[in-house]
Write a protein that binds this DNA or RNA. Structure first.
Lengths: 136, 136
DNA sequence: TGTATATGATACTAAAATAGTATCATTTGA
DNA sequence: TCAAATGATACTATTTTAGTATCATATACA
């Protein structure tokens, strides 16, 4: 079972890179090329990932010469759940559990109830992990 | 993200069916055909799943006429983690998290450390859910 | 104002994981 | 003996994930 997809993984790496660059006061605006050079990720794929982060207002993007991407939120305010939500949808350990016939009464299903509790713990823990905390 | 694969799902359904049949003192030995009729699962696929459960000593199997499958462990002693382990490997939310370059020092990685704690909670909770508890 | 250098958008292909089928071999009770 | 069951294994299909190709658009700056 793959808890994080590669989208999420690459997004985190890119954001961590950007966070470090920001701390060093190196640069605020970073290009896909910068990240690819440092992190050795597939360029076009990563580009789409950053575009998506821009759509979702995690990053701002600037086109044209001297363009690139910049944080819109501060790294300490970006949680890994935010990133997982963007690329994998909401974290839901209860889906696919005996869905359909066996569990016709979803709200009454004891497995579902237990899994919801587990899910809440997972989300709560993950919410405490920010890009900033990963970047140092 | 799919927390349980269909293997696991079908295995649980089959075991729940068997547990109910056992409670009713209906029958101890159940055929794949019995389960398929009741649960509407794909027969050959399910058969392989039950074979696997037999390999792993969750079930006993009997060939030939009047053959079928029977619990080896009692339903109250079969946890859903046992089933997930068989079909999906060990539950490990920490895998695929920034593996490789960014996390060269696995043991020092703060994300990994946190995820291990989360993982432990998940496993602990899931361990409390047995086939028996799902069958009633 | 032309052009190199960025991202935006979208369609496509490749690879891997998951789901499922087909089929023949073996065992066994009646 | 034979019908009814599992054992074993090879194959196919589907879905998800990963990644490429390509053209459009914007912009700094020589």
């Amino acid at each position: 079972m793959r808890f994080m997809t590669r989208d999420t993984d690459y997004a985190l790496r890119a954001l961590i890179y950007m966070s470090k660059a920001l701390s060093r006061k190196d640069k605020k605006v970073v290009t896909v090329e910068d990240i690819v050079r440092s992190e050795k990720l597939p360029k076009v794929f990563l580009r789409r990932i950053l575009q998506r982060l821009a759509e979702r207002k995690v990053l701002a993007s600037y086109k044209g010469n001297a363009g690139g991407f910049m944080f819109l939120s501060r790294p300490e305010n970006i949680r890994i759940t935010d990133i997982m939500n963007i690329f994998q949808g909401r974290i839901d350990l209860t889906n696919c559990l005996l869905k359909g016939k066996i569990c016709p009464e979803r709200s009454a299903c004891p497995l579902r109830k237990k899994m919801k509790a587990v899910n809440a713990v997972v989300v709560k823990e993950l919410d405490r992990i920010t890009i900033r905390s990963l970047a140092r």
